[in-house]
């Protein structure tokens, strides 16, 4: 987590575009509404459970690690959203598909390219409500995920205030006060800026997404087909982002071994079997070649 960086023009443009698109959806949705039967209905209870899950994923309450390394990941979020909406299998499938894009996700120095958590929680809920399949759900998750960066940057900026409140308590030698400033006010603030937007997004967004999917199905089915095609292409970005870390030095050939073992096994790739082969090769590599050319270079690129 060493790099400090500006989100850059691409992130700003992307956030604005998704904000614009989703905003237009909200206003145009009712106009386009047709009577179709929604697959899943999002009541206030379901929506607020999703909002609560999104808050918890950013919070310290699950040993810290269970948040950022657990609920924050769309794979886990998808399963839980699926349970909330009564379809855990489909929820986990959609969450897993969305997570493909964030498999190389690195939060470094307080800069994130997107918010996997909101993509997982809100994205899965909207995809379930809209009756989208996993591949098409990826595109929806990405759009929502870009919006999540707004919440993240707000939090990172405002939380600096609480550091100064802690300074004041340090001046009085108040140990408990300093410790409290690290969690109580920031978590109240985080709850407000994460729980309510996510809840509203699911509660108000689900019917809109349903209307849109229904409208697109009758009037422009090629857009949904485009979603599906994008769902086949976008995982390449997630994999490439992770390869920045591991695709170098003497271990590069193993990527091709992994790929072609899968090609030879045809459609039935068993990821656990590949991982076991990988562990065996890792033991051989380290034993006979040592750690050449693969030093810890950190969060570069």
């Amino acid at each position: 987590m060493t790099r400090m960086q500006d989100p850059g023009p691409a992130a700003k443009v992307a956030a604005l575009v998704s904000l614009g698109v989703l905003g237009a959806l909200v206003f145009a949705g009712p106009v386009l509404a047709q009577d179709g039967t929604p697959n899943v209905t999002a009541g206030l209870l379901e929506a607020s459970l999703v909002g609560l899950g999104y808050y918890l994923s950013n919070s310290p309450w699950l040993i810290g690690i269970g948040g950022f390394f657990g609920l924050y990941r769309p794979l886990v979020a998808g399963l839980l959203v699926g349970i909330i909406f009564g379809d855990p299998v489909k929820g986990a499938e959609i969450g897993a598909a969305i997570n493909l894009l964030y498999i190389g996700f690195i939060s470094a120095g307080g800069s994130i390219p997107a918010d996997p958590s909101v993509a997982g929680w809100v994205g899965t809920a909207l995809a379930l409500a809209g009756g989208l399949d996993a591949a098409a759900g990826i595109a929806l998750g990405v759009a929502v995920g870009l919006l999540g960066t707004i919440i993240f940057f707000t939090r990172m900026s405002v939380d600096a205030v609480f550091a100064h409140w802690a300074d004041a308590r340090a001046e009085q030698g108040d140990i408990s006060g300093v410790a409290r400033m690290n969690w109580l006010p920031p978590q109240i603030f985080l709850f407000i800026i994460s729980f309510f937007p996510a809840t509203v997004a699911v509660y108000a967004g689900a019917p809109v997404v349903q209307d849109w999917i229904t409208w697109l199905n009758t009037n422009a089915p090629w857009v949904l087909k485009g979603f599906e095609i994008a769902g086949g292409l976008l995982p390449a970005i997630g994999i490439a982002l992770n390869m920045r870390f591991i695709f170098r030095g003497t271990v590069i050939p193993y990527f091709f071994i992994g790929y072609y073992v899968s090609v030879l096994s045809g459609g039935g790739v068993n990821i656990v079997a590949i991982a076991i082969i990988g562990l065996a090769l890792a033991a051989l590599h380290v034993t006979f070649l040592g750690a050449r050319d693969m030093g810890p270079k950190g969060a570069e690129a």
Partner: peptide, 25 residues
């Protein structure tokens, strides 16, 4: 370093498998 190298072998293997399973052109 040794740990990271071994993890790199395993990581590359599963990334290769993941590419085949999920990237569709």
């Amino acid at each position: 370093d040794r740990f990271l190298t071994g993890a790199g072998v395993l990581g590359n293997m599963v990334m290769g498998a993941l590419t085949f399973q999920f990237v569709h052109v």
